[in-house]
Nucleic acid binder design. Structure first.
Lengths: 210, 210
DNA sequence: GTCTATACTACGATAGAC
DNA sequence: GTCTATCGTAGTATAGAC
């Protein structure tokens, strides 16, 4: 699939995603986006109302891909600890498959009053997708705690720890690479990350040793 | 101390720190810095060569404060697990005392090819300070593993997890607040964070229960 | 040490030809 | 759907009066 040439719209989204991930909303100029997409600046406005709308479409696309990965976990009927393992695998896979996703997501989670608030449907869509993902994680953890499968951890703090440990790691680029001695997105580093996280969680939050 | 009015230089550093933390390097204009400092734009250049140098001086100051907090931990002769607790307390205290530190630090850790590379002594000073902090953490973890006090975790991955779990949490602002139901920098949230982290680490990486 | 004034570039966005 | 041309603003940085 996708052998046919990309539409301009898709091309713009692709190059914007890479640029926004690297430099953030304010750090990217539409001139740069246009150059990378092989268009003129003004042509961008035929496809997107504004830079802000472009940003939210990019972010929404990334969140949608992450949803695709985690949705099966939230529908799973297995035991809490196994679902937590599935969640780690799904999140890591989602971020490892798309090199820009982690950075974009990290920015979305900790940056605020980002830019001229232009409400729009795209921003709300992002909020909705993010809220759905969080709600799934929250339920999973709460059920584990209430079933006695997990220690009585704070669900909110555990979510923060998971996000920090997963999203930051894969967003850390050169820094992470210099720590690990290999690119964070290399196959060995990705599978090692999963294992380290699952080990930590099994010992750290599972009430009974797995 | 510090009852006398701030020098212009200090005032600029203070307001820049707040602005860079919130919006990042590219998101802040010198006009905004000047207004907040009560000066004209061009006066900033009397104190700092360039925007880039200003940024690195701000970052260096933040890293220096963090070093002050963690230095005693690295000199401590106590057992590895106790030193890990000390480290968590020190990092959390450092980030909780300065509301802008976590965001500035998180940006420094995951953003790259930030802006026109202007080497300068200030950027090197930042690199040096960061490397010293990391080296201290690395030694602490390695000693714990080698002494058998910790499980055989990957030191590099554990550092990533610690950074993610601590720095991201305190950088998460409104997002974290909406999860926790209270500001991440509120006294209860800060002490709860320490406790949750130490619980996780005691169960998750300490080889023998404390 | 702060100011006014200015140079030059880039920004996001629009109008209208093709 | 892409282009050229342009608008108005703001960006970093410098020169030189006070």
């Amino acid at each position: 699939m996708a052998l046919e040439p990309l539409s301009s719209r898709e091309k713009i989204l692709d190059v914007s995603e890479a640029l926004f991930a690297r430099r953030g909303f304010a750090g990217v100029g539409l001139r740069e986006v246009a150059d990378a997409a092989g268009l003129r600046k003004s042509s961008l406005f035929h496809h997107f109302r504004s830079k802000t709308q472009l940003y939210y479409e990019v972010l929404g696309r990334v969140l949608g891909r992450i949803q695709l990965h985690v949705a099966p976990v939230f529908e799973s009927r297995r035991a809490a600890l196994q679902r937590l393992d599935q969640l780690v695998d799904a999140l890591v896979d989602a971020l490892a498959e798309d090199p820009t996703a982690a950075r974009l997501l990290l920015r979305a989670l900790f940056e605020e009053d980002r830019f001229p608030a232009e409400p729009g449907a795209e921003a709300e869509e992002c909020e909705r997708r993010l809220a759905e993902i969080l709600q799934g994680i929250r339920c999973l953890l709460r059920e584990g705690v209430e079933a006695g499968a997990f220690h009585r951890v704070s669900v909110a703090h555990t979510i923060q720890t998971l996000i920090g440990a997963i999203v930051f790691h894969f967003a850390s680029g050169e820094f992470g690479e210099s720590l690990l001695g290999r690119p964070v997105l290399s196959a060995e580093a990705v599978s090692r990350r999963k294992q380290e996280l699952k080990n930590l969680l099994h010992r750290g939050i599972a009430a009974a040793p797995a």
